[in-house]
């Protein structure tokens, strides 16, 4: 049974005006418990629109969205409860921070959830640990923090609500490689601790390839490819046509293969690729 799924959803912006724009068409997709899924696509492919449908911020013009097999747009459905279960952290979450202290900002979700105040401290400390910050941050103003730190605070403010599905839109945009790794490590840690489902939207294949169990490739509001990273990256031509590139390491292997080396080119993790090359070099050495 799928935890969260969409069935044939369509979405159109500014319907009925001269600015009408079709953003999604016939998107059918499902998320299982404890999955780590990456959505990739170029700018304007409908990724961000799609995730807004998943927690009911936007209503599909056609089709339906189901959470635990219940249509979220059926009459009397509690959308607010859904939003606690399906947490979204938007692009540049640091732009949505409004509190005086880090603690207050993280507590905002708890307050809305109606969690009693004496439990806040423990819950906040738990998520701070996951994102790799300590208690000295609690009383700081969010506006004093560095880009990477503030991003982690924003992430913590969603995690603290313990959503069953955690959706992140470009969580590492504008961060340096270290910042990027801390975010992904935090996500993996959160998933391990809570057995939740994680959905990461990115336009960077390298980012998601390393962490995701499965990928969804979107192009012009439609699903272009879906499957494990290895399956998706074997469709190099289609991805290139849609304006996306396979991970750099896969490209390198692909070019080496084209130059005549008998190696496998559908690898996308640096470790795997290094292993493959090492095996090949060892073979060569043996032959000599």
């Amino acid at each position: 049974m799928a935890l969260l799924r969409t069935e044939n959803v369509d979405f159109i912006y500014s319907k009925g005006t001269p600015f009408e724009k079709k953003a999604l068409s016939h998107v059918t997709f499902s998320l299982e418990k404890n999955e780590f899924v990456g959505i990739v696509g170029t700018t304007g492919s409908g990724k961000s629109t799609f995730i807004k449908l998943l927690n009911g911020l936007l209503a599909p013009k056609k089709g339906a969205v189901y959470f635990n097999e219940q249509n979220i747009w059926s009459k009397g459905y509690d959308l607010r409860a859904l939003r606690f279960a399906v947490g979204i952290s938007f692009q540049y979450p640091e732009h949505q921070i409004f509190s005086d202290t880090v603690k207050e900002d993280i507590a905002y979700g708890l307050k809305n959830q109606g969690v009693p105040e004496n439990l806040w401290q423990d819950k906040i400390m738990e998520v701070l640990k996951i994102v790799g910050l300590d208690e000295t941050y609690l009383e700081l103003s969010p506006f004093q923090l560095s880009g990477g730190e503030i991003r982690r605070v924003a992430l913590a403010s969603i995690m603290v609500m313990r959503p069953q599905v955690l959706i992140l839109d470009e969580p590492t945009a504008g961060l340096d490689p270290v910042g990027r790794d801390t975010i992904y490590t935090a996500l993996k840690q959160y998933q391990k601790e809570t057995e939740s489902t994680i959905l990461v939207v990115s336009h960077n294949m390298d980012d998601v390839a390393e962490y995701a169990d499965s990928l969804l490739v979107m192009s012009a509001g439609q699903i272009l490819a879906q499957g494990t990273p290895a399956e998706v990256f074997s469709k190099t031509e289609e991805l290139t046509a849609a304006g996306l590139a396979v991970p750099e390491i896969t490209q390198l292997l692909h070019h080496l293969k084209l130059s005549g080396l008998p190696i496998q080119d559908s690898l996308f993790r640096i470790e795997d690729a290094a292993q493959e090359l090492a095996n090949f070099l060892n073979e060569v050495k043996k032959d000599e």
């Binding site: 807004k52 927690n55 911020l57 607010r80 939003r83 606690f84 947490g87 979204i88 952290s89 938007f90 979450p93 732009h95 949505q96 905002y108 979700g109 809305n112 959830q113 403010s157 969603i158 609500m161």
Partner: peptide
């Protein structure tokens, strides 16, 4: 557009 974005973000944290 910014207001819409912020609203969406706060709604996702349970604001009503």
């Amino acid at each position: 557009e910014e207001i819409q974005k912020i609203k969406d973000a706060q709604k996702s944290r349970g604001a009503s």
